[in-house]
Amino acid sequence: MRRIRVLFLALLTGIAAPAVAQSSDSSQPIRIQADSATLDDRKNVAIYTGNVIITQGSMRLTGARVTLTLDNAGEVQKLVSNGSPATFRQTPAGGKQVDARAQTIEYHADTERVVLIQNAFLEQAGNTFQGQRVNYDIQRQVVDAGRAIAEEGDSAERIEIVIQPRKRTEPVSNDDET
């Protein structure tokens, strides 16, 4: 019974999480589906395993294992999804849908930032970014692609970016700057 109560509390505290996507998303409940859950009240950590699907409004995060960390106030601080691959999808307010995948996806709620690690791939409006590490700032809709820190003598792979041509009749807008 205590485990069910703790799970319920963890879900309730997630409702007040900062916006992950559209401004209305933050007012939506966080829904977590998984095969199993382990909750640690002392460490403010919940670990969900087995085909995990987390949704909140337009945001969807999936993985084989997701670790949810709360801060001392009970707010979602960080979600870390591991998978083969883990996936992330959201539609920013007034923007175009973002689809991403990587072996590890970190969502940092306090800075509204998504970090894709290892075999990282992000697509928005036909533009793609891939490499070993891709950072996505949700509020500013800014992508920073690069590789993980290479050790001496490491021949880490370079990033690859594909930018779709803009139609000549299409006006330039802030939504197109990714």
Rank of each mutant, 00 (worst) to 15 (best):
residue 1 M to R: 13
residue 2 R to V: 13
residue 2 R to Q: 15
residue 3 R to E: 07
residue 5 R to Q: 14
residue 6 V to C: 15
residue 6 V to L: 15
residue 7 L to R: 10
residue 8 F to S: 08
residue 9 L to F: 13
residue 10 A to Q: 08
residue 10 A to Y: 14
residue 12 L to K: 09
residue 14 G to W: 03
residue 17 A to E: 07
residue 17 A to N: 05
residue 19 A to S: 04
residue 20 V to A: 00
residue 21 A to N: 08
residue 22 Q to S: 15
residue 23 S to M: 01
residue 23 S to F: 04
residue 24 S to V: 12
residue 25 D to T: 05
residue 25 D to Q: 01
residue 25 D to I: 00
residue 26 S to C: 02
residue 28 Q to R: 06
residue 28 Q to H: 02
residue 31 R to F: 04
residue 34 A to L: 09
residue 36 S to I: 09
residue 38 T to Y: 14
residue 39 L to Q: 06
residue 41 D to Y: 04
residue 42 R to G: 08
residue 44 N to G: 11
residue 45 V to E: 05
residue 45 V to C: 08
residue 47 I to H: 01
residue 50 G to Q: 01
residue 52 V to P: 01
residue 54 I to K: 09
residue 55 T to A: 13
residue 55 T to K: 00
residue 55 T to I: 08
residue 56 Q to R: 00
residue 56 Q to C: 07
residue 58 S to V: 02
residue 61 L to P: 02
residue 61 L to A: 04
residue 61 L to E: 08
residue 62 T to C: 06
residue 62 T to G: 06
residue 62 T to N: 05
residue 64 A to T: 11
residue 65 R to H: 03
residue 67 T to E: 12
residue 67 T to I: 12
residue 69 T to K: 06
residue 69 T to I: 14
residue 71 D to E: 03
residue 73 A to K: 10
residue 73 A to N: 14
residue 75 E to Q: 14
residue 77 Q to Y: 10
residue 78 K to P: 09
residue 78 K to M: 13
residue 78 K to Q: 14
residue 79 L to T: 06
residue 80 V to S: 11
residue 80 V to E: 10
residue 81 S to H: 01
residue 82 N to V: 06
residue 86 A to E: 05
residue 86 A to L: 02
residue 86 A to I: 03
residue 86 A to F: 01
residue 87 T to K: 09
residue 87 T to I: 06
residue 88 F to Y: 13
residue 93 A to M: 09
residue 94 G to E: 08
residue 94 G to S: 11
residue 95 G to D: 05
residue 96 K to W: 13
residue 96 K to R: 11
residue 98 V to P: 01
residue 99 D to G: 05
residue 99 D to P: 09
residue 100 A to N: 00
residue 103 Q to N: 12
residue 104 T to R: 10
residue 106 E to V: 04
residue 106 E to L: 01
residue 106 E to W: 04
residue 112 E to V: 04
residue 114 V to I: 14
residue 114 V to C: 00
residue 119 N to Q: 08
residue 120 A to Q: 04
residue 120 A to T: 07
residue 121 F to P: 04
residue 122 L to C: 06
residue 122 L to S: 09
residue 126 G to F: 05
residue 127 N to S: 06
residue 128 T to A: 00
residue 129 F to W: 07
residue 131 G to C: 08
residue 132 Q to D: 10
residue 134 V to C: 02
residue 135 N to D: 09
residue 135 N to M: 11
residue 136 Y to I: 01
residue 136 Y to F: 04
residue 137 D to A: 15
residue 137 D to M: 14
residue 141 Q to F: 07
residue 142 V to P: 03
residue 142 V to M: 03
residue 144 D to E: 09
residue 144 D to Y: 09
residue 146 G to L: 10
residue 146 G to F: 10
residue 147 R to C: 12
residue 148 A to Y: 14
residue 148 A to R: 15
residue 149 I to N: 09
residue 149 I to R: 12
residue 150 A to G: 05
residue 152 E to S: 15
residue 153 G to V: 00
residue 155 S to N: 15
residue 157 E to G: 13
residue 157 E to C: 12
residue 158 R to Y: 03
residue 160 E to N: 10
residue 161 I to N: 03
residue 161 I to H: 02
residue 163 I to F: 10
residue 165 P to K: 08
residue 167 K to L: 09
residue 168 R to L: 11
residue 170 E to S: 02
residue 170 E to Y: 02
residue 170 E to G: 01
residue 171 P to D: 03
residue 171 P to W: 11
residue 173 S to H: 04
residue 173 S to D: 01
residue 173 S to F: 12
residue 175 D to G: 13
residue 175 D to V: 13
residue 176 D to I: 13
residue 177 E to N: 15
residue 178 T to Q: 14
